[in-house]
Amino acid sequence: MTTFSSAPPRQAHPTARAAVEADQGRPIHRQNVGELERWISGAAGAALVLHGLRQRSLASLALAAVGGGLIQRGATGHCQLYHRLGVSTADARRPALKHGDVHRGILIKRSVTVSRPIEEVFAFWRHLENLPRFMLHLQSVSSTGPDRSHWVVRGPMGSTIEWDAEIINEKPNELIAWRSVEGSEVDHAGTVRFSRAPGDRGTEVHVELNYEPPGGQFGRAIAWLFGEEPRIQMEDDLSRFKQVMETGEIASVDGQPRGH
């Protein structure tokens, strides 16, 4: 049983803490927003301003004002909210996540039961090239060695993000754990556990992802606005995984006729 005292402390990134400490008593206009995030912030701000000004309602004007704030944030590299929270994403290099590390990144846990034998379910997942079939934001995964793979992901607003990952633990028909290699653009670690569902009801697949979204918490909020919230994405990915395993195809209405 977990108690409060035994739970690992939830703490800010060491370098972020250092940045906050160094901030004490200094002018507030210090850069605390990372480069990629600045770019995303600026672009999202511009989109909101354009969208907000096009419709002439009170709510749209408010949206345009928020957009203005984002542009300023992107241009100056300083975020008031991050400052208050003592957070910074401006550090160029971040260490890769260690397995089991509770970071200030995002932890996603989702599971699904698939009515197929465990060997089949494990084998399909372990062949990492299969992942883009049901993880729609993945453009490609290619094996570059026995434990190494190269991942290309569709990011928000048409960008792509790439990294290399390595499998750090593998037990056939039981578990696959991986993490992004040191110095990757995305800090990312994950585990998939496979277990037999009771009464021959197939295979339970439990996924745990721990990652720092590109563009920080802010990027996550923006992605959420555009329907790419990672928890939801994972849930949708898993139901597509189930569909592929059970039915051999993914249910779709793309390309069907409709009226005007």
Partner: peptide, 18 residues
């Protein structure tokens, strides 16, 4: 879909995958 737990139990309208 005819493949999922529910279809196999003849609970066709509760299909998981369609």
């Amino acid at each position: 879909c005819g493949n999922c737990f529910f279809c196999n139990k003849q609970l066709w309208s509760l299909c998981d995958n369609s």
